[in-house]
């Protein structure tokens, strides 16, 4: 059964290993839904979290393939529901709908989001939370106009 998985790869020498890591996905025609790369707590080590939707059997074989790459130190994979997958999402919206006391301002409070910046034309709103919460907020904002939205993911534990 297809499910959402987060594959976490710990590797050395990011410039050398990224091509190999992503090649393992592309040769299996696996679409990557999200990527997050950061320094590890160890020197010259990097963590790359890759979000995909696939069958568990495919994910197991993919992880085994990644694990044998020379510059890859460790690979773990978790079913999405088993991990604490926090997202930080930013929404760019038209300023005119964000006057004080407006419906938009109420939505920001209701969904525990915050206004990051405002200029003459647009406002940037940020919200953190799991995917379903952020998507609910996007749906609620939709009628008021959303120019862009972008998100980053965090895996903790």
């Amino acid at each position: 059964m297809r499910a959402q998985f987060t594959i976490s790869v710990t590797s050395t020498s990011l410039s050398q290993s990224l091509n190999r890591i992503f090649g393992a996905f592309s040769r299996r025609r696996i679409n990557i839904q999200g990527i997050h790369t950061t320094f590890n707590e160890l020197e010259e080590m990097y963590n790359t979290d890759i979000l995909i939707v696939e069958d568990a059997s495919v994910v197991n074989k993919l992880a085994a393939h990644l694990r044998k790459q020379i510059d890859v130190l460790d690979v773990s994979h978790e079913w999405q529901e088993g991990a604490n997958n926090e997202e930080i999402v930013q929404y760019k919206v038209p300023k005119r709908n964000f006057d004080k006391g407006s419906k938009a301002e109420k939505l920001v409070k209701q969904y525990q989001a915050k206004v990051l910046s405002v200029d003459n034309e647009t406002a940037i709103i940020e919200k953190s939370g799991v995917r379903s919460e952020n998507e609910a907020f996007l749906s609620a904002l939709g009628p008021l106009g959303v120019f862009e939205f972008t998100k980053m993911r965090h895996n903790i534990g």
Binding site: N60, K61, A64, R67, K68
Partner: peptide, 8 residues
């Protein structure tokens, strides 16, 4: 010897 070949 190659773990990725087992069960592949």
């Amino acid at each position: 010897i190659d773990a990725s070949e087992i069960d592949k």
